[in-house]
Design a binder for these strands. Structure first.
Lengths: 214, 214, 214, 214
DNA sequence: AGATAAACGAGACGGTACGTCACGTCTTAGG
DNA sequence: CCTAAGACGTGACGTACCGTCTCGTTTATCT
């Protein structure tokens, strides 16, 4: 789950310091409220899209106060991005390098492709994308998630392939990610349509062809 | 220039009807006003982005009344899309089939790539895309333009190549367009950044490799 | 009725100028809306008092928008004062100097005393007073009204009496008004109670005694 | 000092009951905190007036928690009234009946008149009055104080004068107090201005004249 | 010396209202 | 009949406070 980081500065770092634990007092962030807001925000995206995304409505549906929302999320856009990213599996399983490279790459786009298969999922993801494109902070959150969950794993995979000579020498991680995801955004954003069911193989093929050596 | 078609009633159809010359009287649409609105809308996109796009502000800056805007454009999104698309050259010159295929494909993306090279252009195009993604009508306008100026020309080119055997038999126009444009959207929308200057060749190459026969 | 003056600058002044009529175009202020707001504001005062006076509620009850309220009144306090002062008879009839001085003075406080006789009236007037005391602009409006409808008439009356020798030479209009009205505010504000029914004579007597010559 | 009575239910009543001594344990009310809150509340009144009086701000400035404030004062209005009344001298010295009656009456209004001479004092007192007028409980507190420190002493004085025949037979304590204080409220509330420096004599004179026999 | 309980600072929470902004519609007067 | 100007009802914005509540810490008194 990606959020505005409010972590209480890593207590274990100085926990064994003699006495200097200057810990917060007072009530803690309410988990129930947080979850209700995230769910309501996701629903809001599916029902009203990004342009008509209303924090008032999210607050009402989550039985939360607007103040609570603005306390933990910098903007409506951040909330929208967070709500959608949070629905994806927390951590992609690190895959052994013996697995077929096609499958390993496919695993990076599969969760997203599954999510946008349904109408609601497509609406929500389109909304999150638009929010991330509208708002600087939300963009940061999205790109941070994208870097961690996509770019870094993909870089590992391709670096291995490069060692084997299966990838041209001047391969570029940016080119690779945009070949994998660009087509999805095209369908989702520019064409405003659903993303077809059988699509994974096509994307992986395009990528592998484009960066094949020779 | 793409606009909400309000050209009603094709005057020549019933002009010579027996006495139906119920022709419009009064002043015609003011060209000056139209242009001022389009310019103001473009500026609005570059300065405020799509989320904060304000028709009130456009009207004020264009010294036009809101009524005038709503008379000729169905929504703010339509206006935004129209304002941006209108800045592209009216008609791509139909190119002889003798020209190199790389250059002919490049000509389809070149105007867009040139436009988004500047910060303002990137903001404006990003805004137009978001508007088209937000709003059904605006999406139609965008896709109509895209079909006419990109998809049809590209289809012609690829069909010719297919005849020469330079393109695999199962080539698909949708796959082709999304390979050409997807990466641009990825940079513009998902990464919220500028699009690099030397990019055309890379896109054309990716496409040709992906649809190369064999 | 006392309001933020938006009078269209006295058109008859330059109406007969040859051509320079730079008149406003566009819709005029809606009388219906104005009245509905004033009524709702008065009711709001009687039902919730000044501290809990809510512009949102006034707007809702008047079926008006908050924008409309803020367009014509500088603040909630100004609206509250205006709503209450507007319920008093527009102009006190100018009275002949032959009428008994007691009655002429009584006529200055009678409308107010009648108004605060009922519970609602007392609540409303208390609210208006508090609003005028809270807010600078609202205070101006109240004092302007007070000057015009009370101080000036009272000064005339007392000046006449002074000529007859019925009033001491060093009479002071401020002293006079505060002797007449101070007791009312004491009852209304400090004691938070109603103002007794038979009260006029007492106030007039106190005043006349205090400024009697000798 | 006038406060919401939170006396711990008269312990001596049942203290010697057989085993009912369920006495309080734990820390007592913190005097430092109480004073800090009262000072902060007074400052808040002088700086923001009553309408914008904020308990949050008082708590922050007093380095107290809101809980502590709400534990000891029923409402913001009560706190405001308490903070202002607390600044007046605790007990007016009971004056011998040989002192001149003018001076004895003057002593009842002098502390207030001195307090409102400064800008801050006038703001604070205006605020306290408005708070007392807005809120029922705060009004009670104010009127209780007023009864004890003004009405009762004044009644004694006037009763003595009545015995001497210096006051008309139908004198009324309410009339007397409102003649003494009404003018002050008029200046403070209705005119929103300062109260002039030389004023005491005028008020006492008005009162004595109004209730003089004959 | 515990154990118990209240007071305290801090501050999160569900709410209500604020005053502003923008929406899309409607009204007026001028050309 | 188009246009500029702009008032209107609607509704969302992001902020400020409200009064209640939950924390963990700090006293004070009672076992």
């Amino acid at each position: 789950m990606v959020e505005n980081e409010v972590l209480p500065d890593d207590p274990e770092v100085d926990a064994d310091a003699e006495e200097g634990d200057r810990r917060r007092v007072g009530p803690k962030r309410s988990e129930a409220s947080t979850n209700a807001v995230l769910v309501a925000a996701y629903t809001e995206l599916t029902e009203h899209g990004w342009r008509s995304f209303s924090v008032d409505r999210v607050a009402k549906n989550a039985k939360a106060s607007k103040q609570t929302i603005y306390r933990w999320w910098k903007s409506a856009a951040c909330l929208a991005v967070d709500a959608v990213l949070g629905t994806l599996s927390e951590k992609p399983v690190a895959q052994a390098s013996t697995v077929d490279v096609r499958d390993r790459i496919a695993a990076l786009i599969e969760p997203l492709l599954v999510a946008v298969r349904t109408g609601d999922g497509a609406h929500a993801w389109r909304g999150a994308l638009l929010a991330a494109a509208d708002d600087g902070e939300a963009g940061e959150i999205f790109r941070a998630w994208f870097g961690e969950h996509v770019k870094i794993p993909l870089r590992h995979i391709l670096a291995e392939q490069a060692l084997k000579g299966a990838v041209r020498r001047d391969w570029d991680i940016d080119l690779a990610t945009e070949l994998l995801f660009g087509p999805i955004w095209h369908r989702l954003i520019a064409m405003r349509g659903p993303v077809p069911e059988v699509y994974t193989r096509r994307l992986v093929d395009s990528l592998l062809k484009a960066i094949a050596p020779g």
